[in-house]
Design a protein around this nucleic acid. Structure first.
Length: 482
RNA sequence: GCAUGCGUAGCUCAGUUGGAUAGAGCAUCGGUCUUCGAAACCGAGGGUCGUUGGUUCGAGUCCAACCGCGUGCGCCA
């Protein structure tokens, strides 16, 4: 919230969208839950910073918010207790350094921030109004980005922290009542048998934190929505956190479904997006890459490539209106990014290399799109196909193609069941491969034998439809021409 | 310090429950367009799967130790 989307948001969106589409395809009722950080201390920091700068919130832009957020961050907040605790518990050097920096920047701003947070959570009308305009500005960009990315996400999917604000106290009460929470150094914690690290569900000042929200949210999803499978597409760095949350939910029995079954809770951890230097992706000036800049670049590359090919007189896209070529170019650029993200093991870090992704050769999104467009072109040139034409498998290449097609259903099931979109991506690549090999050695339109020709046209048609469908499950569109 | 994840070809990565000579893309080298879309196809070279031990008829896959890298670790989200 209140800041530009960055590459970290890219994976959550792409992977989450694909998981949703895969499960929808298998007949699940999917509740997309966009868990937004719209209610914590950071948002109060930004609000407070805006108040101090006396910014006109009715005309605010995301850049203003971004500036305010960065300003607030730079001004820092004090966390003496946290620093002491981190030292005592041998926290990692990163965490300690972070806290020391914060401590150094300590100031009276902390008081203001907390005061703003109190006003917000207390429902003070002007503060709430300011908060709402801040949310609105951010969400406009979120939905805009989702649209260019082709990710199904709108206001109906927003389930930010603020949505659960009234469920926090009952959640804490429930854990206390169940005897699972205990008071420790003024805070409420949940302990686990097999590990030292407890889960903190209430701060010593009585306010709750993100873990509390996650517990409340999980309860809502299972008890209210009746979710049998709750899938969290979140950064791999939150592994421990989700382990704790899931165990806590299990301990209190909130994973029990109304029908008596047990809900499955799955964290799909995804790795970081790295730059060529193997460090988290940054711009030359060392700032986080905004998602917008990244997508703009990919789309520009896609368009450049599509336009270049349309220049050639014998290209199938020759003579198409610029707007249409632009649309195709966008589809290609976005496909390059999405496929690169989903074709590997999602839990691992990956090196973001636009040159490789948009090279359109080998195991890439555009390669699959090409196979699709190629077939679409063939079918358009043929005088129709028959869905009932008897299949006549003679050449080994068409046998291989047919056998690959038969594996589609299990590929989708595997990918969904194991929350591993790369399984499906691998299938798509194999299918596109099998088709290209088949097409290399088997005449289709030019086949003289009418029965064989009809059979091959049907194979083409099936292949085209499966590629388009499979790509759609990854959230990738397949243009008819490119 | 504790926890957790990773280490497969020059580069980027696959490798479903342990199962036959470890696969692919890029890059390199060599072949295919006067005929259905060459963003394609066919072929070649390239790996002691971090190291050492163990379990097994059989280990890239399971276990242990070690080395290297990443990430996390109570009042942030």
């Amino acid at each position: 919230m209140a800041k530009q989307l960055h590459v970290g948001h890219l994976r959550a969106s792409i992977i989450g969208d694909s998981m949703a589409r895969l499960h929808e395809r298998l007949g699940w009722t999917v509740f997309r839950q966009n868990h937004l950080g719209d209610w914590g201390l950071p948002i109060a920091m930004t609000l407070a910073s805006l108040e101090r700068a006396a910014v006109d919130l009715s005309r605010i832009t995301l850049d203003d918010l971004n500036a305010a957020y960065r300003r607030a961050q730079a001004e820092g907040r004090d966390d003496e207790a946290g620093l002491a605790a981190a030292r005592e518990t041998h926290a990692g050097p990163h965490r300690i350094a972070e806290l020391e920096a914060q401590h150094a920047g300590a100031s009276a701003l902390l008081t203001h921030t907390h005061e703003t947070l109190r006003r917000l959570q207390g429902g003070d009308p002007p503060t709430v109004a300011a908060w709402q305009s801040l949310i609105a500005v951010t969400m406009r960009e979120v939905f805009e980005t989702a649209a260019t990315l082709g990710v199904k996400l709108d206001e109906t999917h927003s389930r930010g922290e603020s949505f659960f604000r009234d469920r926090l106290a009952p959640t804490v009460d429930a854990f206390v009542k169940a005897g699972l929470a205990e008071r420790d150094q003024g805070a409420l914690i949940v302990r686990f048998k097999d590990r030292e690290r407890p889960l903190l569900i209430q701060k010593s000042d009585g306010t709750s934190l993100y873990a509390t929200t996650d517990l409340a949210a999980a309860h809502y999803r299972i008890a209210q929505l009746g979710a049998e499978r709750v899938i969290y597409c979140v950064d791999a760095r939150q592994r421990d956190h989700f382990r704790d949350v899931f165990d806590a939910i299990h301990a209190i029995g909130w994973d029990r479904l109304p029908n008596g079954g047990t809900a499955e809770m799955i964290h799909v951890p995804f790795g970081a997006v790295l730059g060529a230097d193997k460090r988290p992706l940054k711009t030359r000036s060392g700032e986080n890459f905004t998602l917008k800049a990244l997508l703009d670049e990919a789309v520009a590359r896609g368009r450049r490539e599509v336009h270049a090919r349309a220049q050639q007189p014998d290209a199938p896209t020759a003579g198409l209106p610029t707007a249409e070529l632009d649309a195709i170019g966008q589809a290609v650029g976005i496909a390059a990014i999405k496929y690169a993200d989903l074709s590997g093991d999602v839990s691992r870090d990956y090196v973001f290399d636009l040159d490789r992704m948009v090279s359109f050769e080998g195991d890439t999104g555009p390669y699959a799109q090409y196979a699709h467009a190629r077939i679409a072109g063939i079918l358009a040139k043929a005088d129709g196909t028959s869905a009932t034409a008897p299949l006549q498998i003679v050449a080994p290449e068409e046998r291989a193609l047919a056998l690959t097609l038969l594996r589609y259903a299990t590929a989708v099931q595997d990918a969904a069941e194991q929350c591993a979109p790369n399984r499906l991506a691998a299938f798509i690549f194999e299918l596109a491969n099998a088709f290209n090999t088949f097409y290399q050695s088997c005449p289709v339109i030019k086949e003289a034998n009418a029965t064989l020709r009809a059979s091959r046209l049907r194979l083409c048609d099936l292949t085209r439809r499966v590629i388009a469908d499979a790509l759609s499950l990854l959230g990738i569109v397949a243009p008819a021409r490119m």
